[in-house]
């Protein structure tokens, strides 16, 4: 078959030309670390504000409810790339982080922190909706039983509703981490040396246009697929002793 005639120099082999791995393997591995740190830090940072936003969203106070609603609407209705750019150039244009601060010797804080902050702010809007759904999925009878025993609305939320809601939302939360591992690739546009950035760099340096992205795709898959499966298994185990 005359592959060159039809697809130029694109051939099935070009997907799997991994000759660059020897030279760039360590660099790509570091980039995987960068990606994981971005995703995990941003979702962990998002959990507390998201919980707050969810509880605010369920409040009877219209102002409190409105603030939370507006936040969620803004972050869900604008592209992450736009949010990232505004936070990177706007917020962290004003608050300068010294270039010399490094995490593990290869992650400059001046880029990492704006990235994590942007991803966390974005993620908290989505996680807030996940929590809200989880809280609403807990039978209202649980709150009524707690209130009838004299517990305050906050104590009922904290001792009775939230522990059950968090179990309800574990799968969705796992999905959010998986989403963030993928979405964090957008940070490559602002020079954060995570996995997508590494793939681009290798492609540029070696003139192997396709295979670095194949490697990136394989790595993303190998992180995300087992991760979501593992959390599903944990959730199944936690569900024991749970049904009424």
């Amino acid at each position: 078959m005359d592959w060159e005639g039809i697809f130029g120099n694109l051939s099935p082999a070009s997907f799997f030309n991994f000759s660059f791995m020897g030279e760039y393997g360590t660099y790509i591995l570091q980039a995987v670390g960068y990606t994981l740190l971005l995703a995990v830090c941003s979702v962990l940072l998002a959990v507390i504000p998201a919980l707050l936003l969810a509880i605010m969203r369920l409040s009877k106070n219209k102002l409190v409810k409105g603030i939370s609603g507006a936040y969620i609407a803004i972050f869900r209705s604008t592209p992450l790339l736009v949010q990232l750019s505004i936070i990177y150039f706007g917020l962290f244009g004003a608050v300068r982080i010294p270039n010399s601060w490094q995490l593990f010797g290869f992650i400059p804080m001046s880029r990492f922190i704006p990235g994590v902050v942007a991803l966390a702010l974005n993620s908290s809007a989505y996680v807030a909706e996940i929590f809200r759904g989880g809280i609403l999925a807990v039978d209202i009878g649980q709150t009524e039983a707690a209130r009838s025993l004299g517990l305050s609305s906050w104590a009922s939320m904290q001792l009775v509703v939230l522990p059950q809601a968090i179990k309800n939302v574990l799968p969705a939360l796992a999905n959010e981490i998986v989403t963030m591992v993928k979405e964090s690739s957008i940070c490559s546009t602002l020079g954060m040396a995570e996995l997508m950035f590494a793939a681009k760099t290798v492609a540029g340096a070696t003139y192997i246009t396709l295979a670095p992205y194949t490697v990136a795709a394989l790595i993303y898959f190998c992180i995300n697929y087992p991760a979501s499966k593992a959390i599903e298994a944990i959730e199944r185990r936690m569900r024991r002793g749970d049904k009424q």
Binding site: E144, D242, K243, Q244
Partner: peptide
């Protein structure tokens, strides 16, 4: 209300035990 509800026990049709 919380102070007074302590003194009024309530039992529901669907039990509403805390499953966790």
């Amino acid at each position: 209300l919380n102070l007074h509800r302590r003194k009024m026990g309530m039992v529901f049709q669907h039990f509403n035990l805390f499953p966790h």
